[in-house]
Amino acid sequence: MTSPQSAYRSVVRELNRALTSAPATRSKTIAKNFRAVIENGRQSNPQHFDHDLANALTFMRSQRMHKMLLERYNPLHDMSTEERVKATARRVGLDMPVRENGGEGQ
């Protein structure tokens, strides 16, 4: 089993990788509260808490890997429906026709 310090550091590293904002703009209260949760959890039931912390770490790593794989193999996943249709049409060499919103023939 890993030491409590290494488990804490691993979770902090995963949190830093998951966050998109710059370190200087992150809220300091979140870090304080996280540290307090870790300390209180260790005092109540250390063995059970270490297991839960390891599970949380595995979950965060899996989420990050899933997001990375989605971006790599499905580049259209974060686009709107209209953008996705245009990008798909461009991929096969077509351009989408310009829609007229005021036309009665639709």
Rank of each mutant, 00 (worst) to 15 (best):
S3Y: 14
A18Y: 10
T81L: 12
H48D: 14
P75N: 01
S27M: 03
D52V: 03
R26W: 02
H51Q: 15
G105L: 10
A56T: 06
M68N: 05
Q47Y: 01
R91A: 12
P75R: 02
R17A: 14
I38E: 03
R64H: 06
F59M: 14
K67G: 07
Y73W: 13
T20M: 04
S27H: 03
S27N: 13
V12S: 09
E83W: 01
T29I: 13
E100C: 05
I38Y: 14
E104I: 07
L53G: 00
L76N: 06
R84N: 10
L94M: 14
G41C: 02
R91C: 02
P23V: 13
R9H: 12
E100N: 15
G102E: 14
V12T: 09
P46A: 09
K86Q: 15
M79H: 03
Q106R: 12
T25I: 07
T81D: 05
E83H: 02
V92M: 06
E104P: 07
F34H: 10
R84T: 14
K67P: 00
K28S: 11
M60C: 02
G102F: 14
R99K: 12
V98A: 15
R61N: 11
A31I: 08
N101L: 12
P23C: 12
R72I: 08
R64A: 14
K28Y: 03
E83I: 01
K67A: 11
T58Q: 11
T58A: 15
Q43I: 05
S80W: 09
L70T: 09
S3V: 04
T20Y: 03
S21H: 04
E104Q: 01
Q43T: 11
R9Y: 06
L53S: 02
E71I: 09
S27K: 03
N40Q: 10
V98T: 12
D78P: 00
E39H: 05
R84S: 11
N45H: 09
L94I: 08
L53M: 12
A24G: 06
V37R: 04
A24N: 08
N55W: 00
M79L: 15
M60H: 06
Q106H: 10
R64T: 11
H66V: 09
S80H: 00
S27A: 06
A89W: 09
Y8L: 15
V37P: 00
S44N: 02
V98Y: 08
R72M: 12
T88L: 15
T29K: 05
A36L: 07
K86N: 12
Q43V: 08
M96I: 14
P97L: 04
L57H: 05
R99N: 05
V92T: 01
